[in-house]
Amino acid sequence: MNAPRDTSYDDSLLQALADPKEAAAYLDAVMELEDQEALMLALRQVAKAHGMAEVTRRAEVGDKTLFRVLSDKGNPTIGTLNKVLHALGLRLSVEPLPA
């Protein structure tokens, strides 16, 4: 993606993460790090790209709940994680590790 020179990194990142395919690839790459804080940051960035208020509405969770589970120390339940991912147009999947 070629962003104009005057567009900040954060703005161009959020613009890219609004695309579900880009968001999925981004989250997949972050999951390779096996770092929960990095994953929560990435999820927070994707949620911000979609509008936090809209994500809380679609996920049917409170705004305080969303901010808490997506914080650096967040530890969402699988149910909450699924709600947030679905609100973002994404889903959790499992695949075998590379040999």
Results as ranks from 00 to 15, higher is better:
A99L: 07
M52F: 13
E22M: 09
L85V: 04
L66A: 07
A59G: 00
L90T: 03
V46N: 01
E54A: 15
L14R: 13
M31N: 11
S71F: 06
Q45M: 09
R44L: 07
R57E: 15
A29V: 00
A87M: 02
Q15H: 14
R44P: 03
V69M: 05
L97I: 13
A53M: 12
L17V: 15
S93D: 14
R57C: 02
Y9P: 14
N75T: 10
D19E: 15
L41I: 12
P4H: 09
V94K: 02
L70M: 11
K48W: 02
A59Y: 10
A59W: 08
Y26T: 06
G62M: 04
R44D: 14
H86Q: 13
L66G: 09
L70G: 12
A24N: 05
K64C: 01
T80C: 02
L92T: 06
G89K: 00
E37H: 07
A42Y: 04
A16L: 13
L14K: 13
H50G: 06
M52C: 09
A59D: 06
V69I: 14
M31E: 06
L81C: 10
R57V: 13
P96E: 11
L97H: 10
G89Y: 01
H50I: 01
M1R: 04
A3R: 12
Q15K: 13
R5H: 11
R44G: 12
A53Q: 05
L14S: 11
D35S: 01
D10Q: 15
L13I: 08
A99D: 13
A23W: 00
V46G: 07
E37A: 15
T56L: 06
K21A: 15
K73A: 13
S8K: 04
A25W: 04
D28Q: 11
M31H: 04
L13T: 02
A38S: 14
M52G: 09
E34T: 03
D11V: 14
L90A: 01
A59S: 05
N75G: 00
M52P: 03
L43S: 08
E32Q: 07
A38P: 03
P4Q: 03
E54T: 15
H50T: 07
V84S: 04
R91D: 05
V61A: 00
M40S: 15
L92A: 10
G89M: 01
L92I: 13
P96M: 04
A24Q: 12
V61M: 12
V46I: 06
D19P: 11
L43V: 09
A3E: 12
E37T: 15
L13A: 11
P4G: 06
R91C: 03
T7P: 02
N2G: 11
L70N: 08
F67I: 11
D28M: 01
E32D: 12
H50R: 13
M1K: 04
A3V: 07
T80R: 02
L41Y: 05
E95F: 04
L17W: 12
P20R: 10
R44H: 14
Y9Q: 13
E95T: 09
V55R: 09
K73G: 08
T56Q: 09
L97F: 08
K21P: 06
F67P: 00
L33N: 01
